[in-house]
Design a binder for these strands. Structure first.
Ligand SMILES: [Mn+2]
Ligand SMILES: [Mn+2]
Ligand SMILES: [Mn+2]
Ligand SMILES: [Mn+2]
Lengths: 220, 220
DNA sequence: ATACATTTTTAGACTTGTCTAAATTTCATT
DNA sequence: AATGAAATTTAGACAAGTCTAAAAATGTAT
């Protein structure tokens, strides 16, 4: 059975919304995410339920079935692989990438995505730090975390950022915290959750606002 | 104004069909190409006419307006650029490529296609010998021709084929006429339009059936 | 010029995804 | 437990694209 773009987008957003709470995803939350009306969401949910892609009881929200989940994860895989391609090979900037990937993720060809994956060298994370599931739908082990939450004492590397304002980018540049920069996390101050890192033999203080927007990776 | 996938496919096929005759494209021809019914074609043509993308008089067939033509040529550009990418960078085989390109051609992002074009090195022809228009919609000078029609005496190179049966492919392989093979056209026999070529110091006869399915290129 | 076949258009219906407005259910407060 | 607010579903409508069956136009062959 094959899905329309619309159905795929619904499934993907149900998946993403359901990550942040045990209960089913609410009609309104979904409507807001998809920039559509609650009544439209109800209609679509019924269609997805008829196809056994979601479980649905009136007024109780939706959850994905195994089948629906596999499709959702597959869309995420495609989205992130395309983003890697656009950024690393076509020279796109961080922000331009998402909208195009939003369309490319719906191109349906297993061959295509497998070969793209190979071409890209089987990346495990996209440039925003998002983990890329393999073709079985399995996500890589989470060896990656926001600097915000990293264990003190770790050697780490800047893998991505979650804030893309010019202000933030130039700030990072000034500090020397560019993509790929390596440093040690020396200390975290409970008072304001600011951190102290050592980068190229310099000691630097970072506010919580900065730390929470930097993705870092660590080994093992 | 933005077009749906469907509208874009109609425009593209009107363009291709109108290349082979002066008159407008007939409803039935279009229906057959698009694997749909004549009545559906009539409906869509009226929609396109309302958008000023085609000129249409009842029972007289359609032709593209300047606007419609630009859109059609743009789709062809995208289709062929994607085919180059799939073949040269993802390792697709000649036949697998088309169906995927049929979907990719509808991804709408000028940035994307300009960067893809650059990434590919601004190719002028796709691997089937199809010329790739530039972003203004201008096709490259036709320096490429079927062996069928090549001027006797030319040095040429195999650039593509227009027949993809196993039988034909193995035949070519046996003759040494693979993609990129270089040879001279020595003679053409009017009797049956067969040709004589010289390839790697060997003289080979090719029937018209073979010659008409080989694209060759020549300089200046 | 007439008759028949082919092509094209129209009429009416269906599916997908959306919307507004109204009805229903659930939830929070008293 | 009652009530009002918020969330959700239903009812009915619409646009896009398609289809079948029937009507109209065009082309062809005597
Ligand atoms: Mn994205
Ligand atoms: Mn999408
Ligand atoms: Mn093609
Ligand atoms: Mn297409």
């Amino acid at each position: 059975m094959s899905q329309s773009f619309t159905e795929e987008n619904y499934l993907k957003h149900i998946y993403k919304l359901s990550k942040r709470s045990e209960k089913g995803v609410s009609t309104n939350a979904l409507a807001e995410r998809l920039e559509t009306k609650a009544s439209s969401v109800t209609d679509m949910i019924k269609k997805l339920a008829a196809k056994k892609l979601v479980d649905y009881k009136k007024y109780q929200g939706v959850t994905l079935t195994k089948k629906g989940q596999k499709i959702a994860v597959d869309i995420i895989r495609k989205h992130r692989l395309w983003e890697v391609f656009l950024l690393e090979h076509l020279g796109f900037g961080g922000e331009e990438v998402h909208d195009v990937a939003e369309e490319l993720e719906h191109i349906n060809s297993e061959t295509l995505i497998d070969r793209l994956d190979k071409f890209l060298g089987h990346p495990k994370y996209d440039p925003h730090g998002g983990p890329i599931p393999n073709s079985e739908g399995v996500f890589p082990e989470p060896k990656r975390v926001k600097l915000d939450e990293l264990e003190v004492g770790r050697k780490t590397k800047v893998m991505g950022i979650t804030e893309h304002s010019d202000a933030f980018l130039t700030h990072l540049k000034k500090l020397g915290l560019e993509l790929g920069a390596e440093f040690d996390l020396k200390e975290r101050f409970d008072f304001d959750r600011s951190v102290e890192i050592e980068l190229n033999d310099k000691t630097i203080q970072l506010s919580h606002d900065v730390a929470k927007n930097i993705f870092v990776s660590y080994n093992s």
